[in-house]
Computed example of a mutant assay.
Amino acid sequence: MGTEYSIQISLPSVGDEEWHALRDPLENGWLTQGPKVAEFERVFAEKHQVEYSLATTSCTTALHLALVALGIGPGDEVIIPAFTWVATANVVAYCGATPIFADVNPETYNIDVQDALRRVSSKTKVVIPVHLFGLCADVDLLREGLPGHVFILEDAACAAGAKYGNKFAGSLGDAAAFSFHPRKIITTGEGGMLLTHKGSIAEQANILRNHGASISEEQRHNGPHPYLMPDFNLLGFNYRMTDLQGAVGLVQLEKLERFIQERSQWAKWYREALKHIPWLKCPEEPKNGRHAWQAFVMFVHPDLAPMPRNDIMDILQSKGISTRPGTHAVHMLKYYKEKYDFDAVDYPNAYDCDRNTMAIPLHNCMTDRDYQYIVETLESLS
């Protein structure tokens, strides 16, 4: 690449503690969902001040479980933001329901609540606000405007440890789903978590995640009769997290507060160091709450920038700095564009964000010099 630098957009921060945490499940032979998963679920729920939690194979499967547990199916509509990762829309399609897109607020990249409320119909059963990049959506405002029977399912993939006022992400709606993918703040490799205050949702989701079995694997293994098998009253899934992942997740969760504190400090440093570049708009801390800073996503003003965003990203890549667009305008992805005959102007803010946002490296494996080099390189483009 012609440079001594190679700064990744994200790297998981793991070490000896995670390595040693794997020893217990490896030695005791309980590798699939078991006591480590149960402990991870308990501690994660306590951290986010929610009563029920279920670990899953991914945030996508946690979202899917929640929708199925809520009874979502053909003929139902689920409102989602048009600027999000494709999984938010896919889980709705998995249920045979219809995703109804709403535009986003260009200041926060989160769902435009008023636009979402305008799209509520008699078929609307759920709204999925996404806490994009670690910033909580305005769930209270959304709840105020929604009919009482419409559920709120938080897509909190990026928001472990984030706060909306004094309340944690995951405690704001009827249910929530988190991701532990390596690009997230804490990781279990792949993995997710479903949180809910409602025992009925948790009970149904727990059955569904284990093939629809009437009893859990733990109950079967510890039962008095080895020949007893569970009955299967529901068409379920295999969405269980392994105890290996649960062991790693417990260690990572202990580091969450430090990870967020470090990211917050460097996000503040970025904003100060880049504020004199007129063609970059940096993300801000919320006035009421806590950003988790899963990513630092800027808006590149197309009328002010010295060149198109993609050219800027190519130059940064050539200099050893990885970048990414913020995320997708889902309505412009081929499957959804063709299925629903969407046009870019249908959700103009989402489309604008798709074309002009840029994430730069922000993670817990970076050095002071990494940050300085990124800023110096951006300054050199002006």
Rank of each mutant, 00 (worst) to 15 (best):
N90D: 14
N210D: 14
T367C: 05
G71M: 07
T357N: 06
R220I: 09
Q265Y: 11
P283C: 06
W279Q: 06
H221W: 14
D115E: 11
I207Y: 11
N210W: 12
I111F: 01
F296H: 08
E41A: 02
G2F: 01
A305Q: 03
H197V: 09
D352V: 07
L256Y: 04
D343T: 14
P278G: 02
H211C: 12
L70A: 13
P308C: 05
H291F: 12
A273S: 10
P99K: 05
N222D: 13
M1P: 04
H48Q: 11
E376F: 05
P74C: 08
Q219L: 04
E18H: 08
F232D: 02
K255L: 04
L63H: 11
F40A: 11
A350M: 08
V297C: 12
S53Q: 07
F299Q: 12
L250Y: 01
T108E: 08
I360K: 00
T196I: 03
P182A: 02
L381I: 06
S322A: 10
S179R: 00
D103S: 00
A273K: 09
L280C: 06
H181I: 13
I72G: 01
V300T: 06
A169D: 04
E17G: 07
A62T: 01
A205G: 06
F342R: 00
G192Q: 04
E107L: 08
P106D: 10
H331S: 14
I79H: 01
E285C: 05
L250M: 03
A82P: 04
P226R: 14
H363W: 06
D370Y: 13
V92W: 02
S179M: 03
P182E: 03
V251S: 15
E376T: 09
D243L: 01
C158P: 13
A102K: 01
K36T: 08
L117T: 06
G161A: 00
W266G: 05
F133Q: 07
P302H: 02
Q114A: 14
I207P: 11
I201S: 06
E51M: 14
I260W: 00
A102V: 01
E285F: 09
P129Q: 00
G75R: 09
N288K: 15
Q317I: 02
H149T: 10
T98G: 03
L70Q: 10
G2N: 04
I152H: 09
T367F: 06
P325F: 10
I215Q: 10
A97Q: 00
K339M: 13
P99R: 06
P226W: 15
A169H: 04
K287A: 15
A359H: 01
E46V: 03
L153H: 05
M193Y: 08
I374E: 00
G134C: 08
S318K: 10
L208H: 09
V130S: 07
T57V: 12
E17L: 13
G134F: 04
P12A: 03
S200Q: 14
P81S: 15
Q219A: 11
F83D: 02
A55V: 03
E272H: 12
L63E: 08
D140Y: 14
L256V: 01
G191E: 05
E257S: 04
M229E: 13
H64R: 05
C353W: 06
N105A: 11
T196V: 03
T187C: 05
Y94I: 02
F299S: 12
S216D: 08
